[in-house]
Write a protein that binds this DNA or RNA. Structure first.
Lengths: 347, 347
DNA sequence: GTTAGCACTCGATCGTAATGAGTGCTAACA
DNA sequence: TGTTAGCACTCATTACGATCGAGTGCTAAC
């Protein structure tokens, strides 16, 4: 079913008005503000058709029209103009983004902050899934005779360390031996793979060192690897929803915060979304609680590989064009910054 | 001004009823539920006196009485019984707390979670201020010819590391030299002290190594030290406020979340509180936004030294006795776990 | 000093009326 | 045949008033 040019223009007018004001839009308003050269009565006839086609709804007889989710979908797919950011805006955003960058984790945390500040919505950032990340280096470092640090470095540059205490003083040679053996055994293997291996037996060593390995090092090595696989979720702009009329209702506000409160579920929802720029509107979201929200996510890349996600969640009435542009700009920027020479030039 | 025994009993009855129900308490209710052996009329007379003395207020003529902040203060100081936790409760709490412990940061994050689950309030945990923490060890570790890791270990066992990229390949001997010099120069000095030093000139080395030091290592060393000084704030149970009648009002809910939204301010507020178990009620809080809340904090110790704080924030109508007991139990537990042999026995 | 009784207060609840934005339909017009 | 003016109709919103009832404060009796 193709809509006539005129119907499309009217629909667009209604959607953009509604996105701005959050109030049902009447025929007279349209005729006055957007000079389409037709009278309110004609617009009413068209509106009536659009309603029949499922693009508009009617909170009650004497109210104006409100776009349906189907209308937003059409809008996002065809009518919406992505707002081209001006040079100044780009500079401003980049400036904010790189105020404070060193590690990817921090960058993403910061990106969420910037995104929520610009869009006035609630934003989130997901750090990369490290399933494919490969171990590069295991090192045990002496601190004092009862304390050592277990350090793990991965291909992607992630470093993780854990201080360990031993009851019995250890020998420095033991640490060196273990570091070498572990690196030899694990180097080049993916983290998730290593978690399934059991190589203790392949290390030849004396009783005491073996004791250190099985009692102190291995348990913590495993725990640390598991943590390295964890994806982190950062959120920002939670309280922004209070300035959105849709959430002037306590139940809705509560419901909204509930979604974000359950970090684990929300993370999974995000992980399961497709890559690239994805917009889901209202009932297109599979999670019950999210069925009156819209979600926009985009994927960023680290070293050219698929990595994490960045996005916003808010009411279905949302400035799709603007918000999408900002998210895309941010993810492009991040992907750029974390190209092969990750971390940029420090010298 | 000393209150008569009977007035105290009536006041206590009103406070505990109000804490339970959040509804103004009438004379008839008191006389029925708490058998004080006196009639509603007599209670009314006493209530009238208590109101004159500032312990009760009156939302409107035909409503029951509500305790004033002054009444809560009296309650907390004299009437309140700290709820002695039962053995089962203690075991349950400890169990929850130690489900998942390794580092202090994680413990505190988890403690906040447990605390909010038990009290149904919003909780927070503050990690230790590291001002007095002393450097023990600086190490530069090779990863590949353009990548190295800067690792810093402090007396308290905190480990921090930062991956660095260099444009020019470095020599391993340079790393060793720098590690040794830096450790030699900084060992035993407090982090905040080191930040004010400038020891680059005291390191004798060749041009290339010096280049590495000044361009790559030092700037990141300083940044990392600054980060090590940062105090972290963890919060949990944010959405709990929605099940508290006081916050069934959108403005109040918004205001409440606003307090916690500004992490920096809130952290400072907490840092400035005295140590030990501290309860501040309503206007006793110096921050405007917090003047209709009550806050309870307690201090935990690491290695026997003053460390961070753990607490809750909620409406002035709060189960002071129970909540205080839980917080104290948690902080005692944590202090215990992080005694001199921090981290417990791993073998 | 305590208590019963009663008038009084005032928030909460419910129904009714007035208001007005906006529609849908009809009939006239280009 | 598409467009428009006119008008009756609908219905959320607001304001108003009546009623209800929980709880007080006062008085007078015990």
């Amino acid at each position: 079913m193709n809509l006539s040019e005129r119907k499309l223009r009217i629909l667009q007018a209604i959607i953009s008005d509604f996105i701005r004001t959050a109030e049902p839009v009447g025929s007279r308003t349209i005729s006055k503000k957007h000079d389409l050269g037709i009278s309110p009565a004609t617009i009413r006839n068209e509106m009536s058709d659009l309603e029949e086609l499922g693009y508009l709804t009617h909170p009650h007889t004497s109210a104006g029209r409100v776009p349906s989710e189907q209308a937003y979908r059409l809008y996002v797919d065809e009518l919406m103009k992505k707002k081209e950011l001006s040079q100044e805006e780009k500079i401003e955003i980049s400036g904010k983004l790189y105020e404070n960058v060193r590690e990817l984790e921090k960058t993403m945390q910061h990106a969420a902050k910037v995104l929520s500040e610009i869009t006035n919505l609630t934003s989130f950032a997901l750090t990369p899934n490290q399933d494919e990340d490969v171990l590069k280096y295991v090192n045990l470092l002496p601190v004092d005779e009862h304390t050592l640090v277990l350090m793990i470095v991965s291909q992607s540059g992630k470093v993780s360390n854990t201080p360990l205490k031993t009851k019995i003083p250890y020998k420095n040679e033991a640490l060196e031996l273990l570091s070498k053996s572990m690196t030899y055994n694990y180097k080049g293997k993916s983290i998730s793979n290593v978690l399934t291996l059991d190589i203790i037996e392949t290390i030849e060593t004396d009783m005491q060192t073996m004791n250190l390995l099985t009692n102190n090092v291995m348990p913590n090595f495993m725990k640390t690897l598991e943590e390295m696989l964890d994806v982190n979720l950062y959120m920002d702009g939670l309280t922004n929803i209070f300035s959105i009329p849709e959430y002037n209702d306590l139940d809705r506000a509560k419901n909204f915060l509930e979604i974000l409160n359950n970090k684990e579920d929300f993370t999974n929802t995000l992980i399961n979304r497709e890559n690239g720029v994805i917009i889901t509107i209202g009932n297109e979201n599979v999670e019950d609680l999210m069925r009156d929200c819209s979600v926009i996510t985009a994927t960023y890349h680290v070293d050219g590989k698929l990595a994490g996600k960045l996005g916003v969640i808010g009411p279905t009435r949302m400035k799709y064009g603007e918000v999408t542009s900002v998210i895309e700009f941010l993810t492009d920027n991040i992907s750029n910054a974390y190209k092969i020479s990750e971390g940029g030039e420090d010298d």
